[in-house]
Computed example of a mutant assay.
Amino acid sequence: MAKQIKDENGNTYVQKKPFYKKIWFWVLAIIVVIIIGGSLGGSEDKAEKSDSTSKKASSSDIDNKTFNVGDTIEYKGVEFKVNSFEFKPDDPEYSALKDGNQYAIANITITNKSKDTISYNQLDFKLDNAGNLTDFIEVRADSNNNLNSGDLKPGASVTGDLTGQAKPSDKLKLNYTGNMFESKESFSVNLNK
Rank of each mutant, 00 (worst) to 15 (best):
163 T>A: 12
20 Y>F: 15
10 G>L: 09
161 D>F: 03
159 T>C: 04
187 F>Q: 07
116 D>V: 03
51 D>Y: 05
115 K>F: 02
65 K>W: 04
21 K>F: 04
54 S>E: 14
122 Q>C: 03
9 N>H: 13
175 N>A: 13
117 T>P: 06
99 D>C: 01
138 E>H: 06
72 T>R: 05
123 L>C: 03
36 I>V: 15
181 F>P: 00
126 K>E: 14
157 S>K: 13
138 E>A: 12
36 I>K: 00
152 L>S: 05
113 K>C: 01
180 M>G: 13
40 L>V: 01
192 N>D: 08
34 I>K: 01
188 S>I: 03
20 Y>M: 07
49 K>S: 01
121 N>V: 04
124 D>T: 06
148 N>D: 14
169 S>L: 07
60 S>L: 06
173 K>S: 11
69 V>G: 07
175 N>L: 15
51 D>T: 12
150 G>Q: 05
20 Y>Q: 08
175 N>Q: 15
81 K>L: 09
28 L>S: 15
80 F>E: 10
137 I>H: 11
16 K>A: 12
127 L>M: 09
47 A>E: 00
90 D>S: 14
176 Y>L: 07
154 P>Y: 07
50 S>E: 05
118 I>V: 15
140 R>G: 02
9 N>E: 10
28 L>Y: 12
94 Y>E: 10
10 G>W: 02
188 S>L: 10
30 I>A: 15
65 K>G: 08
14 V>W: 13
20 Y>W: 13
171 K>W: 04
131 G>W: 11
141 A>G: 14
13 Y>W: 15
32 V>E: 03
108 I>C: 02
146 N>I: 08
116 D>E: 15
110 I>N: 06
72 T>W: 00
174 L>M: 15
159 T>M: 03
38 G>C: 08
84 S>N: 14
31 I>D: 06
95 S>P: 05
188 S>D: 09
72 T>A: 12
100 G>K: 06
6 K>L: 11
14 V>R: 10
179 N>I: 02
52 S>L: 02
8 E>P: 03
54 S>A: 14
152 L>A: 07
27 V>N: 11
145 N>P: 04
131 G>C: 08
13 Y>M: 10
192 N>V: 10
19 F>K: 13
185 E>F: 14
149 S>C: 04
166 A>N: 02
47 A>W: 00
140 R>S: 08
149 S>H: 11
25 F>Y: 15
94 Y>K: 14
183 S>H: 11
106 A>P: 01
79 E>R: 06
51 D>W: 04
84 S>K: 13
27 V>K: 11
39 S>Y: 01
185 E>N: 14
50 S>D: 03
103 Y>S: 09
133 L>K: 05
33 V>D: 02
62 I>H: 00
130 A>Q: 10
77 G>E: 02
74 E>P: 01
163 T>C: 09
126 K>N: 14
75 Y>M: 11
13 Y>P: 01
117 T>F: 01
140 R>I: 09
39 S>N: 10
159 T>L: 04
115 K>L: 12
150 G>R: 08
139 V>D: 05
2 A>P: 12
53 T>R: 09
53 T>S: 15
150 G>S: 09
170 D>R: 05
133 L>A: 05
34 I>H: 00
111 T>N: 06
77 G>L: 00
22 K>W: 03
2 A>D: 15
154 P>I: 03
128 D>W: 02
101 N>Q: 14
125 F>D: 00
148 N>K: 09
73 I>Y: 08
